[in-house]
Nucleic acid binder design. Structure first.
Lengths: 179, 179
DNA sequence: CCTAGATAAATCGCGCACGATTTAATCGCA
DNA sequence: TGCGATTAAATCGTGCGCGATTTATCTAGG
């Protein structure tokens, strides 16, 4: 109660007055098929369904695959660094990485310089998996049924969107410590 | 074992031979920042972070909000119909809808014509919530930091992509019952 | 030194999300 | 009519994903 967040009502007041008669009604604005966020949400699920059979062969889930990809790019990283790259919290990564360790793909050990941080590094098996995963991008590209140029443009738009949303969440989500 | 899926290796064979010296290497193809799927994945998380404080006021999670939006669009729907609209399984929806019922936003009752199906309909409170949610689209639009035209184009691209991925998953994911 | 605050992971509880299975009702067809 | 096949939800087990809290370690200030 004491906390004073920006409310939906506040935002609504910023909506330009409904002067233009051709403007969509508020009813329309709440239609599911108008939601960009729903497109993103559902496309994420669709990607997952394409990846699943491919990743099953490797014994990975999709988030696990992303962690492995991050490690193939740069080995011997901390949990925090992985979290930064993937946008995930330690509460998500810790158990996920432990599963990858159980699978023998990596090892976790505390940094000797600073015992707080955990360094994650690939095993031989973890490195080897990269070759097995080599065919996946081509598969997924084929699955999109779209041209390379379109996909590149789409990705650029998404990155812009992501940046905007992240900046906004930073400003409006955090409690008012304007540090 | 007996099942014979299309494997990543199979797909990989469709990859043009690594002859062209200017082609991106397989190493590049596995770079995280080249993954469109990662952009989609991370943008979904970013949307969630923007929605969370807004939906907290309504006492909804993001998937719950989508279900409510679907019901605002068309009330008295079955679990299956909701699943079709949102791309979710009954195993996801059943508990989610039960939580919305506990919150007093809707009621579930079995169809008298066909006792297998469950019909979900909004309560007074469920309808009323629509007004409280009215400001959200404007908030989210503001959060994107992008223009309307861009967002519309982005959504169109995503829908095309989703359609492609879904079609592919249908063909390649299902066991070979080409009935 | 040694303690107050900061920092990195880990832990806990909750809610998705799915595949596989189960339960219950309906349909089809001989 | 009756009984196998189909269909709709529900149930179960596993793995994300997050916020809030906890634990362990490090850093600064006195």
């Amino acid at each position: 109660m004491t906390r004073h967040d920006k409310t939906a009502t506040e935002c609504a007041t910023k909506t330009p007055a409904p002067d233009a008669s051709s403007e969509p009604s508020s009813a329309d604005l709440l239609r599911l098929d108008n939601f960009l966020c729903f497109s993103v949400y559902a496309t994420g699920h669709a990607f997952n369904r394409v990846y699943k059979p491919l990743l099953d062969e490797l014994g990975l889930t999709y988030p696990q695959f992303l962690v492995m990809a991050a490690l193939w790019e740069g080995d011997d990283r901390t949990i925090g660094s992985l979290g930064g790259a993937l946008g995930l919290e330690s509460s998500t990564l810790t158990p996920l990485v432990k599963r990858l360790e159980t699978a023998g793909l990596l090892v976790r050990r505390r940094d000797t310089r600073d015992e707080r941080v955990v360094r994650v590094s690939l095993t031989e098996k973890g490195h080897a998996l990269r070759d097995a995963a080599g065919g996946i991008p081509a598969c997924v590209f084929e699955a999109t049924g779209m041209g390379l140029a379109e996909l590149v443009a789409l990705k650029a738009g998404l990155e812009r969107l992501r940046k905007g949303l992240t900046a906004y969440a930073q400003d409006h989500g955090e409690p008012g410590d304007g540090r």
